[in-house]
């Protein structure tokens, strides 16, 4: 019971500080009154809603609280592949080759949020669009399919993204 109370307290403070950060971003005022008002409002709202945002059990924290160092790595990696594949699409528009296909493959990621993020970022880079995500099975429309082999296609589409996402969210 004690551990449970402590965990509830941690949940309240964590979500409240995130709300306060958003308040700082949005108001961007420097007066002390604005800071105090924002802090009070954030704590009130997080007391009402902390059950929604963080899981009941402490073990669930790693499942959706991202690891901040690897988030930076993810953003750098993502913007690099984003512009690279955009240039590839531009090359195709100006007369380059392409082989559109629908491929299927599996993912090794465990948590739902990480799988959702993988599907989202596959669609985010031009050239690949996720059609379906069923448990750990992805259906992807791929514009440059050079293979129909399942595992090879999966490795080529994910190329390192899955590893980084696994470090961000488990």
């Amino acid at each position: 019971m004690r551990a449970r109370t402590l965990w509830n307290l941690i949940r309240w403070v964590l979500s409240g500080s995130v709300f306060f950060l958003v308040w700082l971003f949005f108001s961007s005022e420097t007066s002390l009154f604005a800071h105090l008002l924002g802090l009070a409002g954030a704590m009130l709202i997080s007391a009402l809603t902390y059950r929604v945002f963080l899981a009941d059990h402490e073990a669930g924290l790693r499942y959706f609280f991202p690891n901040p160092i690897w988030v930076v790595v993810l953003i750098v990696r993502l913007s690099w592949s984003f512009y690279l594949s955009s240039f590839r699409i531009v090359g195709t528009i100006l007369g380059g080759p392409c082989r559109p296909r629908i491929v299927h493959f599996r993912t090794r990621l465990k948590s739902d949020l990480a799988r959702f993020a993988l599907a989202n970022f596959i669609t985010w880079t031009p050239g690949t669009i996720t059609l379906d995500l069923d448990d750990d099975h992805l259906t992807v429309f791929w514009f440059y399919a050079d293979t129909a082999h399942r595992r090879l296609a999966g490795e080529k589409i994910k190329e390192g993204l899955e590893g980084i996402l696994g470090k961000v969210w488990v």
């Binding site: 955009s86 699409i89 531009v90 528009i93 559109p100 031009p126 669009i129 429309f141 514009f143």
Partner: peptide, 9 residues
């Protein structure tokens, strides 16, 4: 299908 790819650019 391919217009969707171009439009995503």
């Amino acid at each position: 299908w391919s217009r969707l790819q171009a439009s995503s650019v």
